[in-house]
């Protein structure tokens, strides 16, 4: 993305756009790290300081990022089947107790609230924008479009199914007030006295998933910094960045409520701007310049 921006918008403007994307990915990663420690503290280990979880996660991310994008991709490849299998097992376990009636009243206020309500979820899917930075590293670029579309569809299916299951068990009022609805759903799974307390499995899965996400965003930020600064290699940036992540993730927000407020008020417009707005502007600029024959590539 920083490279495209420079080609399309010129060196100065391109560097500004590249820098803005860098801050966006940095912030996205800081939020992921903080969410990770927040979940562990709120639900499982309230006596442990947040900084401990932040340090551990950032160092794992730094190590993976220093090994390069292929290592992160292989890790994701290993985790994905376990992740999907476990999520499907949870969906199957709650299936006997779901009540479709809890989804009613359906479209009571028309389609408008549904569209507005779907904006925050779009930000999650919009994170696929990372592919624009990863694209130069892919050896079979012709397959990227199809695979990316499949990945977004897969994520959409799993997230939607997770949310619908939660709604069909707890109803809309309770679900809306839960801090971690899916975790609460996993606490709900009980088969007599022999299968219960499976939330530990969910946590394990979520942790592996977040490690891959943090490592990937970590890599992207370091890669983008190297490009903007004109460095030959991104690796010297990796470990110094760990301090930025640890300090920001620990001190940027003081309470869970602050994070929630930030996510609700500011994260959606920010995500919208970087995941949809700016790429559209870049695309329009590229089309206009191509028509004018403004650049050779």
């Amino acid at each position: 993305m920083p490279e495209y921006a420079e080609i399309i918008l010129g060196k100065t403007l391109g560097k500004i756009v590249g820098g803005a994307y860098l801050i966006f990915f940095l912030l996205a990663n800081i939020l992921s790290i903080r969410e990770f420690s927040e979940l562990l503290i709120v639900t499982f280990m309230p006596a442990t300081p947040a900084v401990v979880f932040n340090v551990i996660l950032v160092l794992i991310g730094a190590y993976a990022a220093s090994k390069g994008v292929e290592v992160i991709a292989r890790a994701a490849q290993f985790i994905l089947p376990l992740f999907v299998f476990s999520l499907l097992s949870i969906f199957l376990s709650v299936l006997p107790v779901v009540e479709v009636g809890k989804l009613q009243p359906f479209l009571e206020g028309g389609i408008q609230p549904v569209i507005w309500g779907s904006v925050p979820s779009m930000i999650v899917y919009g994170e696929v924008i990372v592919l624009t930075i990863l694209l130069p590293n892919v050896n079979r670029q012709e397959k990227v479009k199809r695979k990316a579309a499949l990945a977004v569809l897969g994520v959409a299916f799993l997230l939607t199914f997770g949310m619908i299951s939660t709604l069909m068990i707890f109803g809309p009022n309770l679900t809306g007030n839960l801090l971690f609805p899916f975790l609460y759903l996993s606490k709900f799974i009980e088969f007599g006295s022999y299968l219960q307390r499976v939330e530990g499995v969910i946590l394990l899965l979520w942790m592996t998933g977040i490690v891959v996400k943090v490592a990937l965003f970590y890599y992207l930020v370091c890669f983008a910094i190297a490009k903007i600064l004109g460095l030959k290699d991104y690796k010297p940036v990796v470990y110094p960045m760990a301090f930025v992540y640890i300090l920001a993730a620990t001190f940027l927000f003081s309470t869970t409520e602050e994070i929630r407020e930030f996510m609700e008020l500011y994260w959606s417009p920010l995500g919208f701007m970087f995941e949809l707005g700016l790429p559209l502007i870049l695309l329009s600029a590229a089309i206009i310049r191509k028509k004018q024959g403004g650049y050779s590539r």
């Binding site: 499982f44 006596a47 300081p49 401990v52 340090v55 551990i56 730094a62 190590y63």
Partner: peptide, 23 residues
């Protein structure tokens, strides 16, 4: 040089687990 840095970092991280958990 990288290997040594990584090893030192790994040892620091491992030392967290040696102290036991807060909870």
């Amino acid at each position: 040089k990288y290997c040594i840095v990584e090893l030192v970092l790994l040892l620091i991280v491992l030392s967290f687990f040696c102290t036991g958990c807060w909870n």
